[in-house]
C-alpha cells in the first residue's frame, strides 16, 4: 500500500495538522494557566471564521485589488474577533468561578459553548445556514511529480509556523511570557511576586482566542464553507491533539496536532471506517502508554 504514504497524503496531513495546531495551542495555553478545559474554544474558532467573513466584505472595496493587504486585514480581524470573544467569555463566565471547584467551570464552559452556537444559529443576521467563504487569494496549484501543491497548503503551513514561532518567543523572551509561566507554575507564589494574575489569565485567553481566530480564517480559506456549528469537530480533534502532546505544553500541542493531522489522513486513505475512529484510538493508546501525553514532564502528585 505505497499509495497511502504518498507525498500528496503527507501534504494533506500537514495542512490539516496546521489548523489543528493553531486551535490546540489555545487549549493548551488556557489549560496550562487555569487548568480548565475550555470547551468553548472550538466556538472561538468559529467566531474567527465569521469575523474574517464579515471583514472581507467590509475591506474588499477599500483595498480593491491588493489581495495581500486584504488578506492581512482579514487575518487581523479574525484574530481580534477570536481574542474578543475569549476575553468576554473569561470575564463573564470563568472569572467568577475561578476559586470554585474546577468542574463547575467545566460545566459553565459547556454552557458557554452551547450558548454561542445556538445564539449564532438563532440570530437572523447569521442563521444556521452554510455560507460560502469568499476566495481571499486566488487559488493556484503547482504540480510536483505526482503531487499537487496548492498555494493554500503553503499559506496554511506558513501562517501556522509564523504564529507558533511568535508564540514561543512571546512565552520565552518577554516579561509577559515570564509572568504567564510563573502563573502556570504557582498562582500564589506569582501573586506574592506582584504579578496581577487576573490580567495574565485574561491575556492568555486572548492569545488563545486570537490563535483560534486565525485558524478560523485558514479553515475558511481552505474549506470554504462556514456555519455556526463548524467549531465542534475541529475543537474536539484539536483538544485531543493537545492532550496527546501533553496538555499545558506548547511544543506538545504542535506535535500532537501534526501527528493527528497526518494519522487521520493516512488512516482515512487506508480505510474510511478506520479513519473515523483513528483520532480516538491513537489518543487512548498514547495515554495508556504515556498517561501525561508525549512531551509532558514527569511531575509527582502534590500531597
Amino acid at each position: 500500500m505505497g499509495s497511502i504514504f504518498s507525498l500528496q497524503q503527507i501534504l494533506n496531513g500537514l495542512q490539516l495538522g496546521s489548523i489543528y495546531a493553531l486551535i490546540a495551542l489555545g487549549y493548551t495555553l488556557v489549560y496550562g494557566i487555569v487548568r480548565l478545559i475550555n470547551f468553548a474554544h472550538g466556538d472561538f474558532f468559529m467566531i474567527g471564521a465569521y469575523a474574517a467573513y464579515g471583514s472581507f466584505y467590509m475591506f474588499n472595496a477599500l483595498v480593491a485589488g491588493r489581495s495581500g493587504t486584504l488578506a492581512f486585514l482579514v487575518l487581523l480581524a479574525a484574530m481580534i474577533g477570536g481574542a474578543s470573544i475569549a476575553y468576554l467569555t473569561n470575564k463573564f463566565a470563568y472569572k467568577p468561578l475561578r476559586y470554585k471547584p474546577k468542574l463547575s467551570s467545566l460545566i459553565t464552559a459547556i454552557g458557554v459553548s452551547m450558548f454561542i452556537e445556538y445564539f449564532f444559529s438563532a440570530l437572523p443576521a447569521i442563521g444556521p445556514s452554510y455560507r460560502s467563504f469568499p476566495d481571499i487569494l486566488v487559488r493556484k496549484e503547482i504540480r510536483l511529480g505526482n503531487a499537487v501543491i496548492s498555494n493554500l497548503v503553503i499559506i496554511d503551513l506558513a501562517v501556522a509556523a509564523i504564529l507558533m514561532v511568535g508564540l514561543t518567543l512571546l512565552v520565552r523572551k518577554t516579561t509577559l511570557g515570564k509572568a504567564m509561566r510563573a502563573v502556570s507554575q504557582d498562582k500564589d507564589a506569582a501573586r506574592l511576586m506582584g504579578i496581577d494574575i487576573e490580567k495574565v489569565i485574561s491575556f492568555t485567553f486572548m492569545v488563545g482566542g486570537a490563535f483560534a481566530g486565525a485558524a478560523g480564517l485558514l479553515a475558511g480559506m481552505t474549506y470554504p464553507r462556514i456555519f455556526p456549528y463548524m467549531g465542534i469537530l475541529p475543537g474536539l480533534k484539536a483538544f485531543i491533539a493537545a492532550v496527546l502532546g501533553g496538555i499545558g505544553n506548547i511544543p506538545g500541542a504542535m506535535l500532537g496536532a501534526y501527528i493527528m493531522g497526518i494519522a487521520e489522513t493516512f488512516a482515512s486513505a487506508y480505510n474510511s471506517l478506520i479513519g473515523e475512529g483513528i483520532a480516538f484510538a491513537i489518543l487512548i493508546l498514547v495515554l495508556l502508554i504515556r498517561p501525561r501525553g508525549l512531551l509532558a514532564e514527569k511531575i509527582a502528585d502534590k500531597i
Binding site: 459553565t108 454552557g111 445556538y118 444559529s121
Partner: peptide, 21 residues
Amino acid sequence: GEWRMVVYALLLIFIMLFRNE
C-alpha cells in the same frame, strides 16, 4: 423554536455561576 436552546444554555450558565455547587 430556534431561541429555545439559547435560553436553555443561558439558564445553565446562570445556575453554575450563582449556585455552582
